[in-house]
Amino acid sequence: MLNLLVIDGVLLFLVTITALAVIEMRNLFAVTMLTGVYSLLMAAVWTNMHAVDVAFTEAAVGAGISTILILGTLVHVGVKERRREKSLNLSALLIVTLTGGALIYGTLDMPAFGDPEAPVQTHRFQKLFDQNVGKVPVTDTHHVEAVAHGAEQHGGEQHGAHEDEFHGHVYNTVTSLLADYRSFDTMFETAVILSAGLSMIMLLRRRSDEEIEAATQRTERVDPDTIKTERMDPKTTQTVRVDSPPGSDSSGADKKLAAEIAEAVDSAEQIQHDAPEETDKGDQV
């Protein structure tokens, strides 16, 4: 037990150091490498907590593929992070500290890690781990009374006594949770991945030739007013910057084919242009 604690302590220390380094570094290439290191360390932490599946995912996704994707982004963004004018944003620090403090405060009442008496262990999940949950007879499922009734009698017990007891058994409990008991969630997780992909396609794919042609025809109806840069009230929408220097997207240029194509490219640059500042504001929340 002590050995585990020592290992945990060392890992936690390293994780903290890496995280701080990620924040402080200005070279984005190094930051990317450090996030890879961070994920690897986290994978070790998960392993130490016996969450092997999580560790596996962390290693594959966190350390592996996302590093490559971030590198791909760096090709556009460049590796230098712009200097911030204010090195320390006190209100952001305060909010982050408060949030962290609250989270730690909340753990004070929590059951200890691995406590066999914890509700997670005792309430429903013991049956899940034993994979001894009876299915609801189909005919009973559609009215809540049946289920509420079941809830009062501690769930599946009356079903367990049912002659139609279910005997399915899968060796990896995590998989049985993810792909069977809660497979409906997993389906949506997959859909989340898909929507991410679709979003990328919709936002970043280059326009086909016919599309560019159609767009040029359409712009003739565009009123110049819509393209004018609109300055928002600085007090209420602090983070809105004027997206481009005034005049750079005048109506005349917009009608040209080249501008249409440039716009698509610009949109990608736009993200890079705004990202650091926006992230700043995000921290404040």
Partner: peptide, 11 residues
């Protein structure tokens, strides 16, 4: 082999 050991579709 997700249902036998660590891993599954995501990984």
């Amino acid at each position: 082999h997700g249902e036998l050991g660590p891993g599954g579709g995501f990984q």
